[in-house]
């Protein structure tokens, strides 16, 4: 294998990993930016997305239907949770949210285990993407390229949504000053429900897309939530662009670290995060120290 081809495949690998991480991180950072909530249940919703996606693609026999419907269902679930429970807590301090989302993570995790069992489930990639293509004569799974493309499309879509759409404008306004936005007639409650739902839906999209690579399993929530935290912290809590940079950084550190420094790979991500926080306590693009 030539060095160039090897590097190319590693880079694409890292990009596809970053795409999955980005789906997680961007939802978490949007939710934090708007509501100052660190959503501990984000990993559990990622997992829920994978399992709902598994069932949907089995019933419908179509990966694409599942890919669209699973995030919508999980997003609606998230919005309902905000509507029924989180909404009562906005006057309370951060620990209340910590506990309530930790509780949600436990409930969702257990509900998934009861519904789908403890075994890892295979979610096959759609036939169209199950193929292998050749990058400089090196075989490479097409599915990973598809992930990179999806990541780019979703990132651009969210960016345009935040910058151009009316709801995006309301989200930015509410993030900056919820009281002022409310005084100007913004229905802050509805904005919060939508953002929590969108964030959860994005996590589910990540889970659904990760499933063909890593299978849907009960363990996928616990590890992934920490990755998501790291991304958001590196990028700066509440920053959209920060979550993109954080996801790329973590994706590359994970893939290249695993190859070049396998003994340190686990620790490497945290070392990067520590180094960044030492220099910029609020994260790369964060405002708060």
């Amino acid at each position: 294998m030539s060095t160039v081809a090897f590097l190319l495949t590693q880079v694409v690998n890292a990009l596809s990993q970053s795409a999955l991480l980005f789906f997680l991180g961007v939802g978490l950072t949007l939710i934090f930016g708007l509501m100052r909530i660190v959503n501990f249940a984000h990993g559990a919703l990622y997992m829920l997305g994978a399992f709902v996606g598994y069932s949907l693609s089995h019933w419908s026999g179509n990966f694409w239907i599942a890919l669209v419907v699973a995030p919508v269902l999980v997003g609606l679930f998230g919005a309902a949770f905000e509507f029924t429970i989180l909404r009562r807590l906005y006057r309370r301090d951060a620990p209340a949210f910590l506990m309530v989302t930790f509780g949600l993570a436990l409930v969702v995790g257990e509900a998934v285990r009861l519904t789908w069992g403890s075994d890892a489930l295979q979610v096959p990639a759609p036939p169209l993407l199950a193929d292998v293509i050749f990058l400089l004569d090196e075989p490479f799974p097409l599915y990973r390229l598809f992930l990179v493309a999806t990541g780019i499309v979703v990132a651009v879509a969210i960016w345009q949504f935040l910058e151009r759409s009316r709801l995006g404008l309301l989200i930015r306004a509410t993030s900056q000053n919820a009281d002022m936005a409310s005084a100007l007639g913004v229905d802050v409650k509805r904005v919060r429900s939508s953002v929590f739902g969108i964030g959860c839906g994005l996590a589910a999209l990540g889970g659904m897309l990760a499933a063909p690579l890593v299978t849907a399993s009960n363990g996928m929530a616990a590890t992934v939530i920490i990755d998501a935290f790291v991304i958001v912290i590196i990028g700066g809590m509440g920053s959209f662009l920060g979550s993109l940079i954080g996801a790329l950084l973590v994706g590359f550190v994970q893939v290249f670290g695993n190859y070049y420094l396998p003994d340190l790979a686990l620790a490497f991500m945290y070392l990067v995060m520590l180094a960044i926080l030492m220099v910029r306590p609020g994260g790369l693009l964060g405002k708060e120290a």
Binding site: F32, V38, A94, I226, F229, V230, I233, M237, D263, L264, L266, A267, Y270, L271, M273, L274, L277, M278, P281, G282, G283, G286, E288, A289
Partner: peptide, 25 residues
């Protein structure tokens, strides 16, 4: 304590996870 608020929480988390990684390796 270089950081405050949520960043402080995340730094403590990072150190714990670092020790977790070390305990594995």
């Amino acid at each position: 304590t270089l950081a405050t608020g949520v960043s402080f929480s995340m730094l403590t988390l990072a150190f714990a996870q670092l020790l977790y990684a070390i305990s594995f390796k």
